[in-house]
């Protein structure tokens, strides 16, 4: 990892918002780089100064009374905001490494309102894995369109051998592969492109207890398509139109058989 990348991740590192592999990469870089260590330390000091010294304005007592006494209003059934039809997010990855984990977790425990299904957590994790891969410009650990380079890269890193096929001739060139985490377990991710769109294909050993729906799920503007095949479970995540993603799924399935 280079200094430039570390600088871009310093805040997320301090905030415990990096998932384990990337956090480890930043930590390893810091061991050997004094400049980046200084940057992280100065940023951490700034954050601590804000926390300790910037005012937190608590609501005046009068306001509590005003709000609490507001009359109950008519609640027309047609006002719905589907954006809020979302459940508590999975956040193990962000919490696990956070030095704020305890504080944040206790506040979550207090205000936990709805227990999400494991399927919802999983979809959230997949989408955030996809978003992170785009966000930090770290799509792949092994960048190659050659399936004979990408496939062996996973050897010894996972308890599965992901089926790797270049689908360039079918309009979905292979970009590379990476290790990620799904449900707290390591997963193989194959990265494909279709025109300007990136597809993250997550692959883990099948677990019959893990729920999946065959229907595409839309989350935060991304489509998630799940299927199982040959003892493996697959999720394709992309901002690609759902029909194109369905086509991608068929190509992957064909290639397997």
């Amino acid at each position: 990892m280079e200094c430039r990348e570390v600088a871009g991740l310093a805040d997320a590192f301090i905030d415990g918002e990096l998932e384990a592999p990337r956090r480890a990469a930043v930590a390893a870089h810091l061991l050997g780089c004094m400049d980046c260590r200084r940057l992280v330390e100065e940023t951490r000091e700034m954050v601590e100064a804000i926390r300790d010294q910037a005012p937190y304005y608590t609501a005046p007592a009068g306001l509590a009374a005003r709000v609490a006494e507001a009359p109950a209003l008519a609640l027309p059934p047609d006002i719905r905001d589907s954006r809020w039809n979302v459940r508590r997010r999975a956040r193990q990855w962000s919490l696990a490494a956070s030095f704020l984990a305890v504080a944040v977790f206790s506040s979550l425990a207090t205000y936990r309102l709805a227990v999400p299904t494991s399927g919802e957590i999983l979809v959230d994790e997949l989408v955030s894995g996809h978003v992170r891969s785009l966000m930090v410009d770290h799509l792949t650990d092994v960048a190659s369109s050659d399936q004979h380079t990408v496939k062996p890269w996973f050897n010894g890193k996972l308890d599965l051998a992901p089926p790797v096929k270049d689908l360039t001739t079918r309009g979905f060139p292979l970009v590379g592969g990476r290790l990620d985490y799904v449900g707290g377990r390591p997963a193989a991710v194959l990265v494909y492109r279709h025109r300007q769109h990136v597809i993250n294909l997550f692959i883990v050993p099948d677990n019959p207890q893990r729920p999946t729906t065959a229907a595409p799920v839309v989350r935060h503007g991304f489509n998630v398509l799940a299927w199982r095949d040959a003892g493996l479970q697959f999720w394709a995540v992309s901002d690609l139109a759902v029909e194109d993603l369905g086509k991608f799924r068929e190509l992957v399935r064909e290639a397997e058989s």
Binding site: L73, R80, V86, R87, L113
Partner: peptide, 11 residues
Amino acid sequence: LRHFDGYRGGD
């Protein structure tokens, strides 16, 4: 309060 029925128990 007015839009509360659109809230489904998220964060």
